[in-house]
Design a protein around this nucleic acid. Sequence first.
DNA 1: GGCATGATTGACCGGTCGGTCAATCTATTT
DNA 2: AAATAGATTGACCGACCGGTCAATCATGCC
Lengths: 224, 224
Amino acid sequence: MTDRSIMPSSVAALPEVPLAATRKLDPEATRAAIVAAATELFVEHGPNGASMSDIAKKAGVTKSLIHHHFGSKDELWAAVKLAGIQPYLDWQRELLESRGPDETLLTDSVIWYFKFLQANPAVVRLMVWMAIEPPAVGERDDDLITLGVARLEQGQREGLIRADVDPRSVIVGFLSLCEHFFQYRHVMGCGRNGCEDQPADAAADAYLDAIVKVMARGLRPEEE
Amino acid sequence: MTDRSIMPSSVAALPEVPLAATRKLDPEATRAAIVAAATELFVEHGPNGASMSDIAKKAGVTKSLIHHHFGSKDELWAAVKLAGIQPYLDWQRELLESRGPDETLLTDSVIWYFKFLQANPAVVRLMVWMAIEPPAVGERDDDLITLGVARLEQGQREGLIRADVDPRSVIVGFLSLCEHFFQYRHVMGCGRNGCEDQPADAAADAYLDAIVKVMARGLRPEEE
DNA sequence: GGCATGATTGACCGGTCGGTCAATCTATTT
DNA sequence: AAATAGATTGACCGACCGGTCAATCATGCC
C-alpha cells in the first residue's frame, strides 16, 4: 500500500517481468473482483448488513475505487443482483430451449429447478434478499412462469392435465415447493429421527421424490 | 423537556386529575409500547435496517429507556421475535386442540394455515427475517410438523393416504406452499392478465383452491 | 414525612457508516 | 517527449450507529 509512495520510482520500475497479457491495471478484472466480493458479502449479510469497507477489503481494493466504478452502494447492489441472478437466467434459457413441449416437461422442470437451487445456494439467498429488503418494488416477470402457464393450458386442452385448477397457481406452487425448501432447510428441524442419521442430502431426495409424486398424480385428470 | 427542571414543583403538581387507574408511570405499558414500535420497524426493515433511535422515536420514549428495559438491541430483537411469533403459536395450539384426528384434518389445516398467514402478514415477514438474518442458528421445532407427520403416518396405516411418499416431506411441502405464496406474492407478477383486473384476493383464492385440489388427489392412494 | 427503588431523561462517547476529494500512478494518444 | 484520460490511493468528512452515565423524576414503603 504505502510501498509505492515511499519507495523511489526506480524500485517500483525494477520488476521487468513480462507485463504483457495479464500484467496490467485491467479495470475489467477489478470490476469483476469487486462484484465477486460484494456478491459474497451481500449474499451472506444482506445489503444492509454488508459494509463498503468490508467489500473493499475482501476485493483487495480501496473503498474509493468502488465508488469510482459503481457510484454508490445501491448501484453496486443493483450490479450484484444483476450478475447474481445470471445463473438462474442461463439455466432457465437452457431449459426452455432444449425442451420441446411434451408430457414430461412439468415433472422434469421440477426436478431440474430443484437440483439447480440445490447447486446454487447463493441464488437462493439472493432471491430472499431481493424479495424482502426494499419495499420490493420490481416484479419478477419470469419467462418460466408465463411459458409454464401456456404449456399447462395446452396440456389441459389436450386432456393431459385436469382442467379444474388454475394453471398459474400450479406454476407458482411448483416454484414455491422448490425455493422454500432451500430457504428454510436449516431452520426446519429434521424431525423425530434427529438430524445426524440422514446424510444431509437424503432429506432433499425424499422431498423431491414426494413432491414429484404428489404433483404428478394430483394433476392427472379424473379417471373414471 | 426542560420544563420539568425549570418549573417549580408546585406547577408540576398542579394537575389534580384523578391519577388512579391509568394515570401512572406504568412500566409495563412502556415495555409494551417499545415492543410494538420495535416489532413494526423490525418487520419492515429487519434487525439490521431498523435503528434504536427510530424505535425510540416511534415508541415515544428515549433510547436509554429501551436499554434500561431490554439491555441491548439483540435482546430487544429476541423479545420482538418471541412476541411476534405468539399469534402463530396461539393459532397452532387452537388448531391442535380443537381438532381430533379425522380425514379432513390435512385439508383443513392447509386452509386454516393459509388464511392465518393471509391475516398476519407481519408474522410472514418475521419468519423470513428470522430465517435469513443471523446465521439462523435455532431450529424451528414445530409441534405442527411432528404432530402432522404422526397423523399422516396414521392415515397411511389406515389406507387413507398413499404410502409411497415420505410424510415429513409432505408436511414441509404443505408449509412451503402456504408460506412462500405470501412471502413472494408482491414479487411474483400477475401474469399475462396484468395485475389490475383481479381484486388482489382473487389470486389468493385461486391459489388456495388449486393447492388443496392437487394435494387432495395427489395424496389419495392408488385406485384400481 | 423521609427514603429507597426504579422509571425516565438528555447529554455524551467511540466507532463505523457511506461518501468525497485531491493527489498519484498507469496507459494510451499525439 | 508531452499530454491526456482513466485507474487507484489515502486522508478526510459529517452523520448516524449502539451504548453508557449521571441526574431527575415518580412511586411505594416505613
